[in-house]
């Protein structure tokens, strides 16, 4: 823990979270808050996806499944069961992590592209299950009852509370990435990414490591899903498990620099702003996928290390600060 305090990125993460929390409060800027919460969610999803793709070398095309399941469980617990939002979100996170552990023990027996395909299968199967699941409203989904906002001091207050909670989850996501990166556990993951068979012969218990990181990478996205869908007031299978969002997470990660903590945040932030700009621009809104796809193609072709990889090449010593 003491070594964490000596790392510049640790303080930068706290600073970032502080700025996110402070900016919209100043002048009570609700529009800015809504923009920033989307950036925060993008950072949460991307940095946790990075634990699989960047750290372990396993492409998860269905990462959004954790976010969506977290949203459903959180909403169910908070509205149907009437639990406090924070408790609901945490319990949702734990349950989704357990589900992920279960899935992981199965599909992580697969390597490389086979694993990637299986994650698509998991996404589609879970979505199909939820769309047929009666207690969760099948394809129409669920709504947050007005009463559910009461424990948080009414709807207006509840929206601010959720915002701060999401910012907290964002900071935790980045800190988690940083902590894992410098740990022995992280070293084992990187060894698996480089050459799984060699890593096993060196003593890394790849089966257990992969299952744990898959499960860990599910936790904070699930918590964020619970908070976000509560804030939005409703959930249904098509918005909870949006395949495109799952895939855009990969674009964000590659853009910023896969395997780096700062890269995940940078890529998510930049891409999310770009996407919001494109989606609201009257002329370009229809082309946001074209631009995203072209961007991804350019990045992997010209700078496979992403923006951070490019920074490393430009200033080699930047590695010590930007991890």
């Amino acid at each position: 823990m003491m070594t964490m305090l000596r790392r510049p990125l640790f303080w930068l993460i706290l600073l970032l979270a502080g700025i996110f929390a402070w900016l919209p409060v100043r002048g009570n800027n609700v529009a800015l808050r809504e923009d920033l919460i989307l950036v925060a969610v993008a950072i949460i999803l991307t940095s946790n996806l990075n634990l699989m793709i960047g750290y372990t070398g396993y492409v998860n095309f269905g990462h959004i499944v954790f976010y969506g399941l977290g949203g459903y469980l959180g909403l169910y617990l908070a509205t149907v069961r009437g639990w406090h939002l924070v408790i609901s979100a945490l319990v949702a996170g734990v349950l989704v992590s357990l589900v992920a552990l279960l899935f992981g023990l199965g599909i992580l027996r697969l390597r490389g592209a086979y694993f990637a395909l299986a994650t698509i299968g998991v996404l589609v199967a879970v979505q199909a299950f939820v769309a047929n699941f009666e207690p969760w409203g099948r394809s129409t989904g669920m709504y947050v009852s007005f009463d559910s906002y009461a424990p948080l001091g009414g709807p207006r207050h509840a929206l601010w509370t959720t915002y701060f909670l999401v910012i907290g989850v964002m900071a935790l996501s980045l800190l988690l990435s940083l902590a894992i990166k410098s740990s022995k556990f992280g070293l084992g993951l990187f060894a698996i990414r480089e050459d799984e068979d060699a890593a096993i012969v060196l003593g890394v218990n790849a089966t257990v490591y992969k299952a744990i990181i898959y499960s860990v990478s599910a936790f904070l996205p699930a918590v964020a899903g619970a908070l976000m869908f509560f804030k939005n007031g409703m959930i249904d299978p098509s918005i909870a498990f949006e395949y495109m969002l799952s895939l855009e997470g990969i674009v964000m990660l590659m853009l910023g620099g896969s395997g780096t903590v700062a890269g995940a945040a940078l890529g998510a932030g930049l891409y999310e702003r770009l996407r919001s700009y494109l989606l609201t621009s009257p002329r370009l809104s229809e082309f946001h996928l074209v631009i995203a796809g072209g961007l991804l193609l350019l990045v992997i072709r010209l700078a496979p290390g992403g923006l951070i990889g490019w920074l490393y090449r430009l200033i080699p010593h930047s590695r010590e600060v930007v991890e």
Binding site: I53, G57, V59, G112, A113, A116, L247, I250, V251, M254, E286, F287, H288, L289, V290, I291, A292, G293, G294, L296, L297, I300, R301, P304
Partner: peptide, 27 residues
């Protein structure tokens, strides 16, 4: 340019083209 490189690269590059085609088609 991705033949023979890691599968991650070919997954991502074909996926990028997929996004572009879907984007143009949607427009």
């Amino acid at each position: 340019w991705v033949v023979g490189r890691s599968q991650l690269m070919s997954l991502l590059s074909t996926f990028a083209v997929n996004m572009m085609v879907i984007g143009i088609g949607t427009a």
